[in-house]
Design a protein around this nucleic acid. Structure first.
Lengths: 206, 206, 206, 206
DNA sequence: GATGAATGAGGGTTCATTCAT
DNA sequence: GATGAATGAACCCTCATTCAT
């Protein structure tokens, strides 16, 4: 009946509720009461498990990064032919942002705070080595195969891939408003996916 | 001695102070006291001129859009040869974001609120017709001149141009952290400018 | 009708209400709500005037010291014959403690906090020079007149004078309990006053 | 390994931890969590053994009185020559306060609460008969021997003896601050001990 | 006897906004 | 137009205490 039985599950529910709240309202705008209500927990429990709002925020933020990086690794880009690998990464990133809008919210919030919290996290830094290395490897394979031009920086490339999806989706409200279009209509989304892949692959072509 | 003399100037100072504050902390995180302090005005004056915090926010937001669009028009892209025009727009957008970080802050904040305020503003929508039309014209000229491929949507293109700069700069704190690089070092900035123009122009090439 | 008119008076009422509350319950035990209620003020005003609970506490503490030292100076011990001066100081100190139990409460509280707040106050240190000097002068005059023995340290003496009254009154509850006497009965108070003056004067006698 | 073995010992450890905490922070300022942590016990155990915070406080308070009275009895003042006995009591009291600052803390705390807890304790009242009787006897012996003056009330005297040490040590933080002296320096302590014994014995002299 | 998890009642503090002058 | 003073509603967090095992 009550939540007294499964601590790990309660802890997890709090984290999930917090993720939604922080993504939606940012760190400052998030309300501890709402998190508790959504988690079906007593407000006091947030403090029992996480000590304070900011710690809970950091825990949620780390989990966000862990999730996307984990899903990315599952793509196994190393085993794909270079151009296919890139296309796949572009489309994966796009889909991930589309299906996990919370992630975008966290990035915004954390940058508003100049990454003050991320800086405290070792875990997150370590998560990103493999991503860069995989991308670097893919580019090199493409160069050797003669399909990619030389000298592309994997970090710059990844930032571009992320940027194309992130900006479109994260700013969809203002963009829809100023351009007078519904950017989230299925057709619009499909068009964006095509535009992005074309753009990235064209840019890599030799 | 005091601020009792020039009402229009006081109004303006309040708006400028508000701009800094909102860009830095978002709508929710902005503090009316800090705005007043920075403006050297009595807090009561904000209410005298703007009624409430949200109105002041909207006024600042509109001014932000007005400024960038106005600077853009001054580029007179219509009078430039298509490829030069595009390169110029890319670099302008990049420089503008670099020199006006407040603008990025406002976009984030306003999207957090699902463009709730922007929706109330007619002015802003009207500002963007010319931008799209100019870009559409430039693309058409390029197509006719045989230097651009066909079928590029000016809105998609503009979103990409903005995205490349916005994401890099707006997320510089988290990106610097996860990739372990100082993205704001002069060299890094120069490299990004090159990367962006290469990418956009390569994508347009026929 | 309301408190909107006289700021200085409101500020003062808050301070007085705070004094009672802090003396009665200590810094930690004092309740901001109770202070506001007693002052007939909005709770918010405490923060408007004093910033935070601790500042209000320090303000009240400083005022306590200022009051007793000021009343002490009014005794004009310098103009009295040495033995009379001492007797007068003993009785004044006793009466002051008796009539201002808040002062005792503050001393306890502040020592519980190891004088953390007092340390921040310059004013208080400066207040005590004259006290010591006056006492030193009186002792010297008594030595010269041949009625006091030599070598009495004015600080040690003052501590003894204060101690005799402070301990009796400050610990009256526990002392009454363990000794099974009502220490606050008029007769008991009179007896204590006599005991104290006898003790101090006997100790000074040559 | 764990605390599961010796119940009596656990109970004792809790009491000792509570003593430190209450002495340091008072009843209201004491934290149940800190007591548990210091005792190396589960917080629930405090409630198992003592029911509630206040009971634990009373238990610690009673133990404090029991300890000092017990040490006092061990002095066997009855067997000493009157003046020596008094000197010994003065010095013992001083040393005891010096070595057991917790005792002072408890007195403060309990008086802040107007001896509300002590009143519930029969044990404590009974402990103090012998003390007064011993002192009364010593005074009488001194009178008969012609070394003490007549009419000294043993309770008044004991209060003075305690006062001289208690005030100096219990208020050492504020006193050091206002007088600009380190009252705890070895020299200062020695001087105080001398001052106190001189003062008490001079006051008794016939 | 012993433990981790859970709870409800405040407590200090902050904030946008309005009043009286 | 301009100002200092005043307000009520929340918000984060803490604490003693109890539950379920």
């Amino acid at each position: 009946m009550s939540n007294r039985r499964d601590p790990a599950r309660n802890r997890e529910r709090i984290l999930r509720a917090a993720t939604v709240e922080f993504a939606r309202h940012g760190l400052g705008g998030a309300r501890v009461d709402r998190i508790a209500a959504r988690a079906g927990a007593n407000k006091r429990m947030l403090y029992y498990y996480y000590g304070k709002k900011e710690n809970l925020y950091l825990a949620a933020l780390e989990a966000q990064y862990a999730q996307i990086r984990s899903a990315e690794r599952a793509l196994e880009l190393e085993h794909l032919e270079p151009q296919r690998a890139l296309r796949r990464l572009v489309l994966f990133t796009w889909s991930y942002y589309l299906e996990h809008p919370e992630f975008l919210g966290f990035l915004n919030s954390e940058n508003l705070h100049k990454a003050r919290h991320l800086r405290r996290s070792r875990r997150v830094r370590e998560m990103h080595f493999p991503l860069v290395e995989t991308l670097r490897g893919t580019l090199r394979r493409g160069e050797r195969a003669g399909v990619f031009r030389r000298g592309v920086d994997p970090v710059q490339l990844y930032i571009s891939i992320a940027a194309e999806g992130y900006f479109y989706l994260g700013n969809r409200y203002t963009l829809s408003q100023i351009f007078g279009r519904d950017l989230m209509a299925p057709r619009a989304l499909a068009a964006r996916a095509r535009h992005m892949t074309d753009l990235i692959l064209a840019a890599l072509r030799r």
